[in-house]
């Protein structure tokens, strides 16, 4: 679902504007698969998937693949509607330097939820 993240975010002018002060590299782990997401000025400058040794990131968000799949449903269930619903139950983990995440929390949450639009198209 993250393959089209750059397109989903960068075509959303309001979302890009919300993240305009953010330059950060962060990690989204889908099961065993790491995806390094590079944000520059609110735009997704790149998504690098697959193991990348010695590549630094500021914060990481990790969850099993089946939980991300439920998170990205067009109308997610209560257990998977929000990343913090998943961390509270111990399904997802958020770690690292959380300052850039919390200062831009709405932006990052809307970025993570962007693939739900694809589920809407499919359904």
């Amino acid at each position: 679902m993250l393959e089209r993240l750059a397109e989903l975010v960068n075509e959303d002018a309001a979302l890009v504007r919300r993240g305009r002060f953010l330059d950060v590299d962060f990690l989204v782990e889908v099961g065993e698969a790491p995806h390094l997401i590079r944000i520059r000025g609110g735009r997704v400058a790149g998504v690098e998937s697959g193991p990348a040794l010695m590549r630094p990131w500021r914060f990481a968000i990790r969850a099993p693949a089946e939980d991300w799949a439920r998170f990205w449903e067009a109308m997610p269930a209560p257990s998977h509607a929000d990343i913090f619903a998943m961390t509270k139950r111990g399904v997802a983990v958020v770690e690292g330097d959380l300052a850039p995440l919390m200062a831009n929390l709405r932006y990052v949450k809307e970025l993570l939820a962007a693939p739900r639009r694809l589920a809407g198209e499919a359904g």
């Binding site: 990343i83 929390l105 709405r106």
Partner: peptide, 27 residues
């Protein structure tokens, strides 16, 4: 059970209103 650290809600480098809204938006 709590689900986040409330110190994020009031500090100079994070906008308290924006982060509060972003946290509770998932509810």
């Amino acid at each position: 059970q709590p689900w986040y650290d409330t110190t994020w809600l009031h500090r100079p480098d994070v906008h308290g209103g924006e982060v509060g809204a972003a946290l509770v938006s998932g509810l």
